[in-house]
Design a protein around this nucleic acid. Structure first.
Lengths: 203, 203
DNA sequence: TACTCTATATTGTCACTGTCAATATACCCG
DNA sequence: CGGGTATATTGACAGTGACAATATAGAGTA
């Protein structure tokens, strides 16, 4: 008898609210997410969330934190199939996992990178950093010898991150004019960008 | 007698609201921006904005549009001082202008790339595309001969854009752990990333 | 068992917001 | 001069985040 009694005390309201938030983000947008809707969804009074969160911002921070965990899982899962592949392939796969996640959960992403003062939510910062460290590890583990052209793995990983994240934002916001794609499908854009990064743009 | 009579009719309420919006974005965040505050700021009743905008979203779209014009101006101004420089320098300057603008106006940027269905606001889409075309022109005009390594100027420009935008987002959201900088100052990160892009990350 | 204490949840309330409807005002054109 | 229309105002309503006061349940202790 851990959860789900319709008793006075919910049992696991905190996590239930986070889960409801993730679900509500997917159906309605990030704008349509209100504390009262979350409370209603979970079947609890409109003020119950304040027992577990200081304010709405704190709920968003918890939802964002969960987002980074899911994103990390997605990247890790994507690496399974390229475990023995050359570094460019592994990097491209990681970047593709990132963009795919972003396009599948745009509202969640906007919360993850929304206006949450990172200093106030150390657990959120840790979750974000952990995801970034996955990228660093992929870069570091994938290189054989001096394959990084003298650059630090941290910087290469950061470059991949900025690209994957930037492309995700531009695609979600529909800011890339179709003529710029030049016959490349949106889903394949990231592979092309990663290839350019690896090869260098000035020959 | 064009503007600024305290008569019944304002004269240029639409632009006044947009300007007030830009100002309010700078002081309070994007969250704190309400139609009623805008109306109050301009000295008009809480429903006057609905004479010129369908709803709040339309006001945000107009503010975003103005943002892309300002961003374009900033990029153009930055190019002045590198008019004769080699292509990497010009590209790096454009990217740096982008990041500088983003860090100076983070809330404005979040509106520019917020949840505005681009199809409903064609003028906003045009403004965004115009800014992107500036990047393409910088890449195209700066290359001498076959300096782009066989890549299309549109794709190189897109790569620069995703990087500048991605880095801006990560910096604003404070998602880059300090150890990843490795003695590079935040303001100089973009130059480093552009250099990596130009040289290629796999030697 | 009975009693208290405390974490948890509820009800009530407030100011603020976006939006709609109805009304008022001022400028333009005949 | 007079009517019409774009512009602005007042009034109202439901939804929201947040605070205060109150109610309930369950754990620990006598």
């Amino acid at each position: 008898m851990s959860t789900s009694d319709d008793s006075y005390h919910h049992g696991d309201l905190k996590n239930a609210l986070i889960a409801a938030g993730v679900k509500l983000l997917a159906t309605e947008g990030a704008e349509g997410l209100s504390l009262r809707k979350l409370a209603r969804e979970v079947g609890v009074s409109h003020n119950a969330p304040y027992m577990h969160f200081a304010d709405k911002e704190a709920v968003l921070a918890a939802i964002a934190e969960q987002g980074f965990r899911l994103l990390g899982d997605a990247i890790a899962a994507g690496q399974e199939s390229v475990r023995e592949a050359p570094i460019e392939k592994r990097i491209a796969r990681a970047a593709r996992s990132y963009v795919t996640f972003a396009l599948a959960h745009p509202s969640h992403l906007s919360v993850m990178f929304g206006n949450l003062p990172s200093s106030n939510y150390p657990e959120l910062a840790r979750a974000a950093h952990a995801t970034f460290e996955m990228l660093i590890e992929i870069v570091r583990a994938g290189k054989r010898g001096d394959e990084l052209g003298g650059y630090e793995a941290e910087h290469v990983a950061l470059l991949i991150w900025t690209n994957a994240h930037g492309l995700s934002s531009l695609l979600i916001a529909q800011k890339i004019p179709s003529y710029a794609l030049m016959s490349i499908a949106e889903e394949d854009l990231i592979d092309h960008l990663v290839h350019m990064i690896c090869q260098g743009v000035l020959k």
